[in-house]
Structures are given as structure tokens and as C-alpha cells.
């Protein structure tokens, strides 16, 4: 095994926020699962059944050595093979802003899971806005580092994320800040100003389901 095991007490705030949205016994896919900390948390605290997808080999090795079911693969490429509705929930914990194709990944996850839970850094936070306005610089969120070393590869705001979700047919049903504050779609503006890290719970709208069945109809019955 490479590296050393981290103490399980060092639970990430966004992981705890995510776990509140997982119901006992659910089948969950963690995309970009790293060394499996969130999967372990979900198993222990929620009794969830977990699967992971991770691009980095060292993370995968650690996960499998811990007995977690993890596949080494690339979400930007490997998600299309998963069948529809394969999971109760799919999770992107601080990974969507690192993806080459975030819209594609979110769209695929909305197909293979009934619920998609996304945690991300919110660049709509007032300090980011103030910094841009007054100094013309993007401040680091969370860790105190330069934009090029620690920032998200694709910075976006809470509003940006909500709009992307809508575009792929997902509606925002719950918001949790890493601080623990919760709300729904109506609190988006407030969270967009005040939260550095957010967890979005996204669910497929009825509209999308209707569209899907309408488009599948002719394929099944047509000549």
C-alpha cells in the first residue's frame, strides 16, 4: 500500500453535509471518490451501499485495499456505460469544477441516478466579488493559496451551478452550506453571497421524465 491511512476523525465538512442527504441503505455512486473517505462515512453513518469511480490510481489502490468497490476510470469518458437508474444517488464532491466536461458528466449522472448531489466552491461569495471589484484579484477559497495552485479549474458561482443543473433537466431541491445551514431554491441568492462551499441536491424533474418517455415512444413502436 502506498501512503498512510488518514485518521477517520478528519471528516470533511462537505462530506458531512452530503451525508445528510443520503437515506439509509441507498445505493450511491461517488464520482471522484479519492481514497474513499466519503464512501466509508456513508457506509458507517447511513448504512449506504457505495460504489466509487476514481481516475487516480493511488486512490483506487487505497480504496480497494480497504475493501471498497471502486473502479479506476475517467468520469469524462466512462459514465455512458452505466445503465439508466442504476443508483439512488450519484455524488460529485468537489470534483465537478475539475472536470473536462462538467455538463456532460452532470447529464450522465442525471440519467444513471435519481438524485445527484454536488459539492463545490462558490465563487459567488461576497469576498470573491469584493476582491474582484476592489483589487481585481480572485481570492483563494478555503486554503490560503494562490489562484493557480489551489483554485477550482472551472470556477463558478452557486447561480451558475443551478443554471447548469436546469439545462440538463435537474431541479435544485435542497441546498446545504458546509457550515450546516440549509435551504432550498428560494435561498439561492443568499447562499450565493454568503457560502464558500455548497452542497446542491439535484433531482430529475417530471418534465424530463415525460420528455424521455415521449422520445422513447416512437423508437419502440415506429417502423
Amino acid at each position: 500500500m502506498t501512503g498512510t491511512a488518514r485518521p477517520s476523525t478528519a471528516r470533511r465538512a462537505d462530506h458531512l453535509a452530503i451525508s445528510r442527504h443520503i437515506r439509509p441503505g441507498e445505493l450511491v455512486l461517488d464520482v471522484g471518490c479519492g481514497d474513499g473517505q466519503l464512501m466509508e462515512l456513508l457506509q458507517q453513518d447511513r448504512g449506504a451501499r457505495t460504489r466509487g469511480l476514481e481516475v487516480e490510481q493511488t486512490g483506487v489502490n487505497r480504496c480497494v485495499a480497504k475493501g471498497l468497490a471502486v473502479v479506476q476510470g475517467d468520469a469524462d469518458r466512462d459514465l455512458p456505460v452505466y445503465p439508466d437508474d442504476a443508483f439512488d444517488a450519484a455524488i460529485l464532491s468537489k470534483t465537478i469544477q475539475e472536470m473536462a466536461r462538467p455538463k456532460f458528466v452532470l447529464g450522465e449522472l442525471s440519467r444513471i441516478a435519481r438524485r445527484v448531489i454536488v459539492s463545490f466552491r462558490n465563487y459567488g461569495h461576497w469576498r470573491v466579488r469584493a476582491s474582484l471589484l476592489t483589487s481585481g484579484r480572485i481570492p483563494a477559497l478555503g486554503a490560503n493559496r494562490a489562484w493557480w495552485s489551489d483554485g477550482a479549474r472551472r470556477p463558478c458561482t452557486a447561480r451558475d451551478m443551478a443554471e447548469l443543473a436546469e439545462e440538463v433537466g435537474l431541479s435544485l431541491t435542497a441546498i446545504t452550506a458546509a457550515s450546516g445551514a440549509t435551504g432550498d431554491r428560494r435561498s439561492l441568492t443568499r447562499f450565493n453571497w454568503t457560502a464558500e462551499e455548497l452542497v446542491f441536491v439535484l433531482e430529475r424533474g417530471e418534465r424530463l421524465a415525460a420528455l424521455k418517455s415521449a422520445s422513447a415512444g416512437p423508437l419502440l413502436t415506429g417502423k
Binding site: R51, Q57, V60, N61, A69, V70, Q72, V81, Y82, P83
Partner: peptide, 20 residues
Amino acid sequence: RDLVRALNAAGCETSYVSIE
């Protein structure tokens, strides 16, 4: 990887480790 994709497509509980 092709095998793993097929297992995932079939909904099997699958791990895949590529050793360097």
C-alpha cells in the same frame, strides 16, 4: 477496461485496479 465497462453496464458490483 472493456471488461470493466461491460460489468458496470450489467450493473455488477465491480472494482478495477490498474497496477503501475
